[in-house]
Simulated scan of single mutants.
Amino acid sequence: MAGHSKWKNIQHRKGKQDAIRGKLFTKLSREIFNAARAGGGNPDTNFRLRMAIEKAREANMPSDNIQRTIDKALGNIPGVTYEELVYEGYGPGGVAVMLELLSDNRNRTAAEIRHIFSKRGGNLGETGCVSWMFERKGVLTVAKEGCPFSEDDLMMLALEAGAADFSSEEEWYEITTSPEDFAQVQEALAGQGVKFEEATVTFVPQNTVELHGEDAKKMLQLYEALEEHDDVQAVYANFEISEEELERIE
C-alpha cells in the first residue's frame, strides 16, 4: 500500500474537478457498465450494479442513461461489440501506467492511446512491461464526516467481514480487500448503513515514483488525457506528487 494514500489525495482533488467539468456522468456510466458486464444486468442479484445505480441516481443521472449503459454492457445494442483491452506503458520520470479499456475498434484505440502517450513524454509499452508492479485489490473509501461508526468500530466491522487492511487518512477511512472478498465486505458494511465515497476493485502500485517540476506537470497532463479518452475505463499509475508540488502546478 506504500504511496497509495498520497495518490488518493490527487484522485480526491481530481474528483472534485471532474464534477465541475461535467465528467461525472461518464465515470458513473463506466462503473455501471463494468458492474453489469461482470455480474449481469439485474441489480437485485448484482450488488455492485445496485450500488452503482444508487450512486448514479444520487447524481441525478436520467434513468434512460442508466438503462442504456446496462444494455450496452450486456450486448443488447445491435451492431456494437466491445472488446476488453489492457494497455501498459511509461509516463514521464519512468512512471508505470496501466489502462483498462473497452473498444469497438482495437486498431483505432491503439493508435489514439499511443499518440496520447508520445505527445506527453511517455510511451506505450509491451504487454507485461509494468503489470508486475501492481497488485489487484478491492478498495473502499469512507468519508469520516457522516460515518455512523467510530474508527475502531468501523475497523472491527470491516475486518470481521473479511477486509485485509484498514487505514485512517485525513478526511476518510480506506479499507482494502482481496478481489474475491470485495463484494462481501462492501455488502456487509452497506448493510450497516456505511456510505462509500469510492468502492472499486483496482490495481494498487507496490512501489511509487515521486515526481517534481516538469515531470509532475506532464504526468498529470498524461493522466488526464488518458482518463478523458472515451475507450478508457480506468487509469492506474505509480507516481506520487507532494501537496506543495500540486499547489505549484495548479
Results as ranks from 00 to 15, higher is better:
27 K>P: 02
144 K>I: 10
201 V>I: 14
12 H>F: 12
85 L>R: 15
25 F>T: 05
167 S>R: 15
194 V>R: 01
37 R>I: 00
102 L>K: 15
52 A>D: 03
161 A>I: 11
88 E>P: 02
52 A>C: 03
79 G>W: 09
55 K>L: 05
172 W>S: 12
244 E>Y: 11
63 S>Y: 00
242 S>L: 12
244 E>H: 13
118 S>R: 14
87 Y>D: 01
239 F>P: 00
211 L>E: 01
59 A>K: 02
102 L>H: 13
100 E>Q: 09
126 E>K: 10
91 G>W: 10
3 G>W: 10
43 P>R: 06
243 E>I: 14
137 K>M: 14
99 L>C: 05
4 H>I: 05
64 D>W: 08
23 K>P: 00
211 L>T: 01
39 G>I: 00
176 T>K: 12
62 P>N: 08
63 S>H: 06
161 A>Y: 08
210 E>M: 10
199 A>D: 08
110 A>D: 07
150 S>H: 00
189 L>M: 12
71 D>N: 14
75 G>K: 08
245 E>T: 15
139 V>Q: 07
91 G>C: 06
202 T>W: 11
30 R>Q: 11
250 E>K: 09
45 T>W: 04
16 K>Q: 11
121 G>D: 04
55 K>G: 02
127 T>Q: 12
56 A>G: 01
168 S>H: 12
240 E>H: 12
141 T>E: 14
188 A>T: 14
1 M>L: 08
169 E>H: 03
223 Y>C: 01
60 N>M: 07
206 Q>P: 04
13 R>M: 14
113 I>P: 00
189 L>P: 01
225 A>F: 07
14 K>I: 13
204 V>A: 09
227 E>C: 13
115 H>K: 15
197 E>Y: 08
1 M>W: 00
175 I>F: 01
94 G>Q: 11
100 E>W: 11
216 A>E: 03
94 G>T: 11
44 D>L: 10
164 A>T: 15
174 E>N: 07
238 N>A: 14
116 I>N: 04
6 K>T: 06
41 G>M: 06
148 P>L: 13
40 G>C: 03
135 E>Q: 11
39 G>E: 04
50 R>M: 08
233 Q>Y: 15
42 N>W: 03
208 T>L: 02
115 H>R: 15
135 E>Y: 00
63 S>I: 07
182 F>I: 00
71 D>A: 05
77 I>L: 07
117 F>C: 04
130 V>W: 06
217 K>N: 09
161 A>G: 07
177 T>P: 04
26 T>Y: 13
159 L>S: 07
68 R>A: 12
212 H>D: 07
170 E>A: 14
